[in-house]
């Protein structure tokens, strides 16, 4: 009798403990079909590489029972992706990797009827950094040289970026304003393409993320002049921050995962657990270090508060340049 008790109690305890520790994920919701993993940008850009890394990590560590299928929807500075997600309201199998066009595109196009605050806050995976880049052959080594060259070129100075009214254009406008320049902004599809435009000398400068320019930088094609960060980036220790140069300007790009609006709480919790685990993996941490990514994992109401703050900042910036 005693042994029977034991044999019954031990497994029961184990099950209870397991349930407590694994939270709702085990007992609760699981995807019933492959999950649409929307990428709000073109192929080969920073957002795209990161999304595919997340997908691979999920597969490798079997963090989800169903595959995550990456789908690029780069059209119209992310408008295509946002509208798609809005159409999927209430869908538990559509999530999206976002960047800052998450704030700017709905602000610029109220006609889309997208309210990003309704999206399910799954997790902020990192904040990406920006630097100002030029081609090595220009001989430009610092921001002073850059300002001189860009000033004399006037509106013939081409700044390539990733879309209208997006991060890159905000930074371009900041530079134009701060240094009295008249650079022309030309949008391309995806940061990878933008990086290539600079390496091929079709553009005079870019404000790429480190992950996009790293290959060309390591090959000695391109030079980072300054970083839009709080402190110098360990990877590009020679590039000062704009703060050091007397322009108090810091700008980050969120790398977050969001769910379709009206996603069930159970599904939201499930994805939150998945991506929290992704964040903690060696691969993700290594990638963040290698690509100069920053920031902690943020989720739920904290992430929503962060969105609210960032959205307001972007609204001010966009008003500043007359985009809205």
């Amino acid at each position: 009798m005693k042994t029977l008790c034991k044999t019954a109690v031990v497994p029961a305890v184990v099950i209870v403990v397991a349930l407590v520790f694994s939270g709702i994920a085990v007992a609760g919701w699981e995807p019933k079909k492959p999950v649409d993993f929307i990428i709000m940008a073109g192929k080969g850009g920073g957002a795209d590489k990161m999304a595919r890394l997340m997908q691979s990590v999920i597969e490798k560590h079997k963090l989800a029972s169903k595959p995550f299928i990456p789908i690029n929807k780069p059209g119209g500075s992310g408008a295509e992706a946002l509208v798609h997600l809005k159409q999927k309201t209430g869908d538990d199998h559509t999530i999206m990797v976002t960047l800052n066009s998450f704030y700017t595109t709905p602000l610029r196009q109220p006609g889309l009827g997208v309210d990003v605050m309704t999206f399910a806050p799954i997790g902020r995976m990192a904040e990406d950094t920006f630097l100002l880049w030029v081609h090595k052959d220009t001989g430009i080594m610092n921001v002073d040289d850059f300002v001189k060259a860009a000033k004399s070129a006037g509106n013939k100075w081409i700044m390539a970026g990733t879309g209208k009214g997006q991060e890159d254009q905000l930074l371009t406008n900041f530079l134009n304003k701060a240094y009295g320049l008249d650079m022309k902004y030309v949008p391309f599809k995806g940061g990878g393409r933008v990086a290539k435009e600079l390496a091929g000398k079709h553009a005079n400068s870019t404000v790429n993320n480190p992950s996009e320019q790293l290959g060309f930088y390591e090959a000695g094609n391109t030079v980072p002049l300054a970083a839009f960060t709080q402190d110098r980036l360990p990877l590009f220790a020679n590039a000062p921050t704009f703060r050091e140069l007397g322009k108090d300007f810091v700008y980050f790009m969120q790398r977050s995962v969001v769910g379709a609006p009206g996603m069930s709480k159970e599904a939201e919790e499930y994805y939150r657990n998945v991506f929290k685990k992704v964040f903690q993996t060696e691969e993700w941490q290594g990638y963040m270090k290698k690509k100069s990514l920053q920031g902690e994992f943020l989720t739920g109401s904290d992430l929503k508060a962060y969105w609210k703050r960032e959205k307001d900042i972007h609204e001010t910036m966009l008003k500043d340049i007359g985009e809205i």
Partner: peptide, 13 residues
């Protein structure tokens, strides 16, 4: 390309 990134084979020059 995404597959290569995960194995640390960073495409590029």
């Amino acid at each position: 390309l995404g597959g290569m990134v995960i194995w640390g084979l960073e495409p590029g020059p």
